[in-house]
Simulated assay, not measured.
Amino acid sequence: MTRLPTQGHSSPPTSSTTVLASVVYGLDAFIARLGAQPVDVFSQCGLEGRLSSTPSETVLLGAYCRTLDYAASKTATANFGLWFGHQFEPRRLGMLGYAALSSSVLGDALDNLAAFFPIHQDNSIVTHSRQGETARLDYDVGDPLLHDHRQDAELTLAVLCNIIRDACGENWSPATVHFRNRAPSCTDEHEKVFGCKVLFGQETNSILFPATNLTTPMPAADGLLFSAIKDGLLQIQAHKQSVEQDFLLQVRRVILDLLPHGQPSITQVAERLGCPYWTLQRRLAASGFTHRLLVEDVRRQHALKYLRNGEHSVSQTAFLLGYSEGSAFTRAFTRWHGCSPRSWQGLDRA
């Protein structure tokens, strides 16, 4: 019987969602300018304050959001994320920023931004759409452990607004801006930053603006640069996929090692891997698996391997795959392959 994760863990679930470390650029100087000590803020929130020279280096989005919240408190700047985003130059986003800035026209820039954003930040989307005469950009984080990320949402929409202003001019303003979070105590600053009416408690974090802006040329359009940036982003994507494939292989090996002792729980597998069970659960979900489905997949694959050429009997195979009864293994095997394990062995030998 599968042992369910127990309650009362010493640490609460934490998100494993990451964002490229370019988002940290200038954060220390901005905190210092507002009168707080960056080192204290970073150490309190578990964020590394210096930038790595590696383009694919990431930081935990949860730590980044905590840093924004804590910086807001330490600097007595309630809308810290809003103001940090307002002064953040799009090129400081690294490859994602340059992918947008080197596009030919604003519409292409926003399409490219939306396409590459999941490489920049896990479990998150930027959507660019058009309805009649209105264009819109939506931003959301799909990680339920990061449901309260007001500072990050306001920062991100301010940076997206800066990308549009790069094409349309620094005095450009949207038609309206929407935020999912409740209205903070002071909203005048939001209307000052965006230059338009800002609504809170909405369904999405969105910037709405005239669709006629989409044909505006990007001042730094550069086809060769865009091609190089695109290749770099795809390399980062391939690296992330390789890391996840290696992780899945490691999880499969642990499951296979534990199966002779019975069907392993997600807690047992996580303990063997040296990570919290919720981190394992989230990384499996990002790869399209649940713990139960992966255990079954390991059993299904190795059932054939163990039975092939008569290396193991049906009862031995059932034991190695964690079945307490041979009949349970036979039912599972029949469901997977359309025949009983004994019948399959006979076909394999024929």
Rank of each mutant, 00 (worst) to 15 (best):
Ala332Leu: 12
Gly94Met: 08
Glu133Ile: 01
Leu284Trp: 07
Cys196Ile: 06
Ala29Cys: 01
Thr2Arg: 01
Thr54Glu: 07
Gln151Gly: 11
Leu320Asp: 07
Gly81Glu: 04
Glu189Pro: 04
Thr330Ser: 01
Thr14Gly: 00
Leu347Glu: 12
Leu284Gln: 00
Val314Asp: 04
Val105Ile: 09
Val177Trp: 02
Asp108Pro: 05
Arg300Cys: 07
Gln245Met: 12
Arg292Asp: 10
Leu27Ala: 02
Gly310Tyr: 02
Ala238Met: 09
Pro210Tyr: 01
Ile207Leu: 08
Leu321Tyr: 14
Pro38Met: 04
Leu307Ser: 01
Leu101Glu: 02
Leu145Asp: 01
Gly142Tyr: 02
Gly288Cys: 06
Ala153Trp: 04
Thr215Pro: 03
Pro210Ala: 10
Ala114Leu: 04
Glu203Val: 12
Thr134Ile: 09
Ser10His: 14
Pro260Gln: 06
Leu233Tyr: 09
Gly262Ser: 11
Lys192Tyr: 09
Ala153Thr: 10
Phe319Glu: 13
Leu82Pro: 04
Met1Gly: 13
Gly94His: 05
Asp188Asn: 03
Leu321Gly: 03
Gly46Lys: 01
Arg335Met: 12
His147Ser: 15
Lys240Trp: 01
Leu155Trp: 10
Tyr98Gly: 01
Ala328Gly: 07
Gln151Asn: 11
Gly326Lys: 04
Ala167Arg: 02
Leu20Pro: 04
His239Ser: 15
Asp348His: 09
Ala175Ile: 00
Val298Thr: 10
Gly232Gln: 11
Thr290Tyr: 05
Gly262Lys: 00
Ala286Val: 07
Ser43Gln: 15
His337Phe: 15
Leu113Cys: 08
Pro184Cys: 12
Pro264Ser: 08
Leu248Ser: 12
Arg33Gln: 15
Asp231Lys: 14
Ser173Asn: 08
